[in-house]
């Protein structure tokens, strides 16, 4: 496939991923509303919000980092998405996977948060640095089980390529890493709860404490960039988990079903649990999820 067409397909893929991320965010708002006994907003409410936010004028002036942070956020999401093959065998949706991309993916997942930290510090609102410091401490904590799970998978396949990891899982459900290395899967899926920032790990936005946290000062086009960045980051993360643990996908329908299942794992946990405090969350991630990750690595080494 020529590079030009590949780039065009990837651009289209990014737009589809943003739309998909907004749709699942809308479904989540609906699900949360139904759990609380409300009717809830329409599923396409996120699109209306995005449009309205774009049509607002802004006069907010802070520093240059303030303007750059949403770009980092959206850029981190798009970069992460472009590295992960979505559907195997469909060239348009297999993106730019290469040997060793797992390391880059592990970096890109946290890239947006780091950019956000710089921008929030520039916005001058006290809630922003508080939210960022809480988020970064939680991130440091859940990165440990996540990285251990990644190491376990890489040691199992003897490769740091996501494509190789998918290919090693073919041939039946029991070949999926979810069952082939359950301890690593447990560690990674618990780290996923922390990554998605739903309860009990929603300590960054913490509605009753630091109302919206880092994006307090962002409005208008900056907010729209952050909303779309968040949407594509969510999609990229669930696609990554599908590739790593659920054997990838050979059709768009399979990818849809598997990603929905992975995402709703965190939503359903989030709907019924209250929030941890920051130090509780850190202690939780450094406790038995980390033990499970280490055991997953050992399991691979012993076999």
């Amino acid at each position: 496939m020529p590079l030009g067409i590949k780039i065009a397909w990837s651009f289209l893929g990014v737009l589809v991923a943003i739309a998909y991320g907004l749709v699942i965010a809308g479904i989540i708002r609906k699900v949360m509303a139904r759990i609380q006994g409300r009717i809830g907003p329409p599923v396409w409410q996120q699109f209306i919000d995005l449009g309205k936010v774009i049509f607002q004028r802004t006069a907010t002036r802070h520093g240059w980092m303030f303007y750059l942070a949403p770009i980092f956020r959206a850029g981190g999401g798009i970069g992460l998405y472009l590295l992960i093959p979505v559907v195997i065998g469909v060239p348009a949706l297999s993106n730019f996977s290469f040997n060793g991309d797992l390391l880059l993916v592990m970096y890109f997942i946290f890239f947006g948060s780091l950019g956000m930290a710089l921008g929030a510090a520039d916005s001058g609102h006290p809630h922003s640095p508080i939210g960022i410091s809480r988020g970064l401490s939680q991130m440091t904590a859940y990165e440990l089980p996540f990285a251990l799970a990644m190491v376990a998978l890489a040691a199992q396949v003897h490769s740091f390529s996501i494509h190789d990891i998918i290919m090693a899982q073919q041939g039946g459900i029991l070949h999926w890493n979810l069952f082939a290395n359950p301890l690593a899967a447990i560690a990674a899926f618990i780290a996923f709860l922390g990554m998605n920032m739903y309860a009990p790990f929603n300590i960054v936005g913490a509605p009753q404490e630091i109302p919206v946290g880092p994006p307090t000062e962002y409005n208008s086009i900056f907010l729209s960039l952050m909303m779309s960045g968040r949407a594509i980051l969510a999609v990229a993360k669930i696609v990554l988990y599908m590739d790593l643990f659920l054997g990838g996908a050979h059709s768009i329908l399979a990818a849809f079903v598997k990603t929905i299942i992975i995402y709703f794992w965190s939503v359903f946990v989030g709907a019924v649990f209250p929030r941890f405090r920051t130090e509780q969350a850190v202690r939780f991630f450094l406790g038995w999820p980390t033990v499970a990750g280490i055991a997953g690595v050992l399991l691979v080494l012993i076999r």
């Binding site: 009717i39 809830g40 907003p41 409410q45 209306i48 907010l223």
Partner: peptide, 14 residues
């Protein structure tokens, strides 16, 4: 009121 697309925002910027 969320069924009409309304939501509470704690910051005037949004």
């Amino acid at each position: 009121f969320e069924r009409f697309g309304m939501a509470m925002r704690p910051t005037p910027r949004q």
